[in-house]
């Protein structure tokens, strides 16, 4: 079982976590027409490469961001979300 490092709880088997999907910065609804909004809501960055993802450590209730290579299943880093780190 893979090890994932929770920024608060440290390295843990991945079974202790819930996968929260791709990290997507909050959108401004006013800026998008209907079709663009429909795409933004449904479309994802599913291609191979490093992705920013939400992960949740269930027992402690901790959400955090993991940068993970979805081809190698390699975690580059994990950190707690802040607007500065999240939305860049």
């Amino acid at each position: 079982m893979k090890i994932l490092t929770c920024p608060l709880n440290g390295p843990r088997p991945i079974q202790e976590f819930h996968y929260g999907g791709e990290f997507r910065p909050p959108l401004d609804p006013a800026q998008l027409n209907d079709a663009d909004w429909g795409q933004e809501v449904h479309h994802r960055h599913g291609e191979p490469g490093v992705k920013r993802e939400w992960w949740y450590h269930t027992a402690s209730g901790t959400w955090f961001i993991a940068e993970r290579d979805n081809l190698q299943d390699r975690v580059i880093q994990t950190y707690l979300y802040t607007p500065e780190r999240g939305n860049d």
């Binding site: 079982m1 079974q15 027992a59 402690s60």
Partner: peptide, 17 residues
Amino acid sequence: CGYDFSTATLDRVIYTR
């Protein structure tokens, strides 16, 4: 439990399954 308690710090809470 899949946590290695032999490495745990005393008096520190560990959230795990």
